[in-house]
Write a protein that binds this DNA or RNA. Sequence first.
DNA 1: ATTCCGACTTAGTTGAGACTAACTTTCAAC
DNA 2: GTTGAAAGTTAGTCTCAACTAAGTCGGAAT
Lengths: 228, 228
Amino acid sequence: MERTAEHTSTAVDDYLKSIFHLTRGSVRAGTRDIADALRISQASVTAMLKKLAAMEPPMVDYRKREGVVLTKHGEKRALSVIRHHRLLETFLYQTLGYSWDEVHDEACRLEHVISDRFEEGLVKLLGNPTHDPHGDPIPDHKLRLGRTATEALSALHPGDRVVVERVDDKDAELLRYLAGKSVLPGRRILVLSRSNFDGNLSLQVSGCRGKVVLGPEIAERIFVRLDR
Amino acid sequence: MERTAEHTSTAVDDYLKSIFHLTRGSVRAGTRDIADALRISQASVTAMLKKLAAMEPPMVDYRKREGVVLTKHGEKRALSVIRHHRLLETFLYQTLGYSWDEVHDEACRLEHVISDRFEEGLVKLLGNPTHDPHGDPIPDHKLRLGRTATEALSALHPGDRVVVERVDDKDAELLRYLAGKSVLPGRRILVLSRSNFDGNLSLQVSGCRGKVVLGPEIAERIFVRLDR
DNA sequence: ATTCCGACTTAGTTGAGACTAACTTTCAAC
DNA sequence: GTTGAAAGTTAGTCTCAACTAAGTCGGAAT
């Protein structure tokens, strides 16, 4: 009902979130990468990057043909949206009984709309959680992002014992597939072998009889820490 | 993140909701009334009414200079949004610990965005509630709106004993004021007297020592049923 | 019957945020 | 060094939903 203009729009939030994720590792995000992540045209991205850079205070440092990074302000805003997103995922999973693969899309819609009061309510209800259902760390109330030293499952060798920490949450079909194989955050895994031919990993998963075989593209999206 | 186009937009939802509320009682809603309710210009309303009438299926029956009513489809949609709104208010109040006057604005933002799955989760969590914290009936899953035979407190006479059923929820300041006087849904009230001079009502409220005096504009926004 | 006011409509504009089409820059391969 | 593709930018357009300004309509009071 209330036609209250938000300080930053849904679209702006989405751009900042994408840039945040894309600039983990690489220094600057390219127009192309952002366009692909948001499934919009490159031209639209160029236009928006100019706006983000022209805001007061500026949300990004944008240089033509060199890409963007977030400014301090842009990063704060991105982390705030990510905090909302991950708190919501945790809530949907724990309180509303959503399955693992359903939480992402709903959280994407709600994250732009909830107030500080709502966030506070969730924190209290959920007991100040530190990780969402996929194992991603939830930025704290000062928007400091916890790090969990992890590596991709695909980088392991036979004999390694690890615990699943986090799974890339973008792809609902993948999540459903992995849930079927019991590859969930918290599960322990023993790497049995790796094929020299196709790179497939053969795994023993705790609480699951028989072995699980995963292709390298999938193993790259599962993050683990060493067990013990 | 996902740029999924909703079937009806936030703006459309708000128009349908307004028209629904305005056409309780009066037959057709006028452009002026809708403009005031949504705090936008008359011209904007005229433009949107044309669009709503041109939709497939049409959401309203609009006749120039005669006003609008909802069609069956428009009413279904309005009731769906109202169901979302009132379920959310109940959730915010009961589960997240919001106060009486905080729930409306937050629900107004969330109501457009939650999925059927979310609605279902709320219903299960809250035990299929029939009324929101202000006493308004929540449309059921078939979108049938329960009626509670009530009359405005302002229509009562000295000696009447009533129970507060519902309070107009639009005005957060009013809600805070009434909460301070313990005029809440469920409270019993005895009407002590009414002033011939200014129409003020003098009341005895259950669980509250001393009497409460309310002006007629306020009493018009409090709905009650007879006690016993 | 005229007048006047308020409700309503029309016409034209704006700003967000998307799009396509066409041009430029960069860079790797030859 | 030229060339060709991929990445990036510019220019112009579209839709949505708001706006203002300038009319029109209709009913009540004179």
